[in-house]
Design a protein around this nucleic acid. Structure first.
Lengths: 246, 246
DNA sequence: CGTGCGCCTTGACGCAGATCAACTTTGTTT
DNA sequence: AAACAAAGTTGATCTGCGTCAAGGCGCACG
């Protein structure tokens, strides 16, 4: 773990996730209280933040980078159950242990709150608990969406669904009125397989197939160009067409 | 929908789910406020409570019976994303439409709250919002547990996992110090298939296999006797052995 | 510069579970 | 009691994806 001094003194007021994280609804005086219980931690890509069952004496928001939540069976089978991006929340107030393995998949910065004072604040001021409820309901919706992907979609549809998610979130769009999107994959083939309930070979094959058919264009292994997002959405099997381009 | 007069006048104070539902933490005066905004609704097995996208002017707690939340793709593939049992909560405060199809799978009684006053109460008193956050976090954990089942378990492990869930929840245990459990399946084979991401034929075959091997004993189609719950847990592939007895 | 190491790709083959189809059991209607 | 529908079982066959195996590409290292 790396602690850079500049990060250790960041002010909430100019925090990049100020308006989307668990602190989004806090008043200035509440932010002051949060400042007192917070500290930053940085992790390198590949580092484990916490093992399932570990004591966790803090909860946290992702400031930058990405982390995964995964479950592992005794025989080594693994399933990713969450993908944490900037502003997402880690940890459960009122529970001491981590429920899942938490791993940094890119370089990662987290804004951590000491658990005791944070839980105290949840009781005394409504704004944090309110925002956390809203975020948790969103997470639950996302998890249920993912259950459909895992339970009923084909390998090709799974890959297209995952690419569509990244396209929506990280996208740098092309010229206005085109439907092209470019982004970088934050996950290895193996991590994608863990997310999708597939093997890494199947992931690789399906990506190759989409490339062969011109639905995506690879620039290197990780950079993806989607010439027409609607075509990709079609492959994902989603009924809602991508209304994201106005 | 059936409205029986006796149900329409039930008092919160002797409600069977009083201590586990969203109202669990309410004080007597808060219960009085809830009484004013609440009404009961009954549904027969098979009836649809709401279609995905429907306007829902209430939120509700399941009082008795069971309901399912399901997502459907254009071509008819279906995935159950939630199984609601007594005390579980339906609906999302702050959202007008239902996110999923809600279907009664047994005869069902729900305690409904008019949405507007309920949302008002969430803001003014902390006890309801607090409890709802806790319940939502539990739901999220359950959904993530289920993602492992959908993504990584074999058909046999999926069936065993589902039976184990029912065994834990509805179980009537045998004589003390035995590990036997008896319960009734609230779901048809097709509904189980929708829950597990399988076909109903595969569900039927795997249940037959477990029966043939003596891991479960069927009395009729729906009544299940598990002679040794530990053996069933073993088949489910869960690392945590069932410490539910003793 | 070559060597080793992640990460990824591609091929050959086998199997778990889907699909298609026939039949049984159970409960309901008349 | 006959007729019917809904739910479940079982068999035969097919196939999508997993498994096993062999290499390719890019990059850090001595």
């Amino acid at each position: 773990m790396i602690l850079s001094p500049d990060l250790a003194h960041q002010e909430c007021s100019d925090c990049p996730i100020r308006h989307r994280a668990v602190c989004a609804r806090c008043e200035p005086d509440e932010l002051t209280r949060l400042e007192e219980m917070k500290f930053y931690r940085s992790y390198e890509a590949g580092q484990t933040v916490a093992w399932a069952g570990d004591q966790m004496d803090f909860v946290a928001s992702v400031v930058s980078g990405a982390a995964t939540l995964t479950q592992t069976m005794e025989d080594g089978r693994r399933q990713m159950v969450g993908l944490l991006l900037p502003s997402d929340f880690v940890g459960r107030p009122g529970r001491s242990g981590a429920s899942y393995d938490v791993v940094a998949v890119t370089d990662l910065v987290m804004c951590c709150f000491r658990k005791k004072p944070f839980e105290q604040m949840m009781v005394t001021t409504p704004h944090v608990a309110e925002r956390l409820l809203e975020m948790t309901l969103d997470e639950l919706d996302a998890a249920r969406e993912w259950m459909l992907v895992l339970g009923r979609k084909t390998a090709r549809e799974k890959i297209a669904s995952l690419l569509a998610i990244f396209a929506r979130r990280d996208a740098v769009f092309g010229p206005v009125h085109t439907r092209s999107v470019q982004f970088d994959l934050p996950l290895t083939r193996e991590a994608m397989a863990d997310y999708l309930g597939l093997t890494l070979e199947t992931v690789s094959r399906q990506i190759s197939a989409l490339k062969r058919e011109g639905i995506i264009v690879l620039q290197g292994k990780r950079s993806i160009l989607v010439p027409d997002i609607d075509v990709l959405m079609e492959e994902a099997g989603d009924d809602s067409d991508g209304g994201l381009l106005s």
